[in-house]
Design a protein around this nucleic acid. Structure first.
Lengths: 199, 199
DNA sequence: CATATTAAGTAAGTGTCACTCACCCATTTC
DNA sequence: GAAATGGGTGAGTGACACTTACTTAATATG
């Protein structure tokens, strides 16, 4: 398993990653300079390019690391939950909670990486994003098999609706620095997605 | 009304905007240089800054122009449609169709502008994006009043689910250059959102 | 145990790019 | 006919992402 361990990595690398995370709490990625990252990390600019292909690659690696933590937490939350719909609710809640707590992670994922074509070749996308989607897909299939979820909608559409809704609820909160009302948002979303909007 | 008319604008300005649109068909915004834009437009680099505050502002103005066309088309499609749910279906279909046809527009809106904080101060956001949201909100309220749509879900959540779902369906198509199956996607989305996923 | 090898980290660049500034040249306006 | 206005130019500049050649420290090897 290609786990990104925190151990064994050189201190400079860790300091650089930590520096970017810190800076992303204050300003957007584009207006952060490599000089600034190096200074915050307490290393020289050149060292960044020892460990990362370029500035964006550093961003992807930071996202990867945070995403792995998120997936771990999500699967922990999922343990012991019975029923496909309950599992989907659990995922929605875990996601909203994590997005609210880990603002830097969410900002990277929802706004900073989308525009780099390279992102979709990165480990963060190829491993984590796809993993996340797959977990949801598996639950949907399970729900269909066990007659909890309608058979006449394409599972992929159900997944898109769930993921799209969650992201769209969080986006304004992330951009305008508002908090996410995790509990109520979870209920609102589940209520809407599970039962539909028609009277 | 602060309409962005195509008339009366100096030819250089039009050529610059057209050049960016052309280039965005081939590569992402970040890897397009101002020199390239100027060359494609057949003007000098300096002229860009006569008409636009900076490179990103040019992007926002191009988006504004395309968005206004989209809103016009959408409202035309909406004419004569009766019933809130039918109106929502019409909007979803118009959006999917436009997103599929106007790839450059969609790429700008869904992937290129999100990461600039300035975008949310731009006319494209303040006028068009909010206008689009408002049109949907009004229909939802109408649907609730006329007992077509459930009263027990917050209208804003319904809007988020609709917009989020549509965008999430289109995003992979835009990024990986796949076509959008407008008709089937419309039905799939409406079916899911109107009636829910629960058996 | 000396030496070769690799890895961590540095320091001084360099080319490119977004953006600026001073300046034309043609109309229009008074 | 001078002044003002608006479209357009082209040379320049600072900042920034990234490179390259080098130093030092740790590790492995004959």
């Amino acid at each position: 398993m290609a786990k990104t361990s925190t151990r064994k990595l050189p201190p400079g690398r860790l300091k650089i990653a930590r520096a970017l995370k810190t800076l992303l709490g204050k300003k957007d990625f584009n207006s952060i300079t490599t000089a600034e990252i190096a200074k915050t990390a307490g290393v020289t600019e050149g060292l960044i390019y020892k460990y990362f292909n370029d500035k964006r690659d550093l961003l992807f690696k930071v996202l990867l690391e945070l995403f792995e933590q998120f997936l771990l937490q999500m699967e922990k939350d999922l343990k012991g939950v019975e029923g496909a719909l309950n599992k989907l609710r659990s995922i929605i809640q875990s996601t909203l909670f994590w997005y609210d707590q880990q603002r830097v992670f969410t900002r990277i994922l929802l706004v900073e990486v989308r525009n780099s074509p390279d992102f979709f070749k990165s480990d963060a996308y190829q491993q984590c994003v796809r993993d996340y989607s797959k977990i949801i897909m598996d639950i949907i299939h399970e729900g269909i098999d066990l007659d909890e979820i309608r058979k006449d909608i394409k599972p992929s559409v159900i997944r898109q609706v769930i993921q799209g809704s969650v992201e769209h609820v969080c986006l304004p909160a992330i951009i305008f620095n508002r908090e996410i009302a995790v509990e109520t948002a979870t209920e609102d979303l589940c209520c809407t997605i599970f039962f539909g909007i028609q009277r």
